[in-house]
């Protein structure tokens, strides 16, 4: 159960989503990938992509305009 953090702060779409997809490929089932984002579009497209692929997703607002998207790889 490894945990990976993907730093996407200061990155605009679609870079955060592409970075998360790359990290999710490397992760094993049960691993958790945490994406740090400050781009509100990424708050929509990353969870949408992850949920469409059947992963568990949680969004935490860590600060004004800053979020952590926690994705658990399920398949």
């Amino acid at each position: 159960m490894a945990e990976f953090t993907v730093d996407c702060l200061g990155e605009a779409c679609p870079v955060p989503l592409m970075k998360v997809q790359k990290q999710m490929e490397k992760a094993a089932v049960g691993d958790v990938v945490i994406a740090q984002i400050d781009h509100s579009c990424a708050m929509k497209n990353i969870p949408e992509w992850a949920r469409n692929n059947g992963h568990n997703v949680e969004i935490e607002e860590v600060d004004d305009g800053e979020w952590e998207i926690v994705i658990e790889k399920t398949n």
């Binding site: 200061g10 400050d38 781009h39 509100s40 004004d64 305009g65």
Partner: peptide, 18 residues
């Protein structure tokens, strides 16, 4: 809109490449 959502933020510039 961003102020009403309390999501205003000055973003840092990541690199010269950006």
């Amino acid at each position: 809109a961003t102020l009403l959502a309390s999501q205003f933020k000055f973003k840092k510039i990541k690199s010269l490449k950006q």
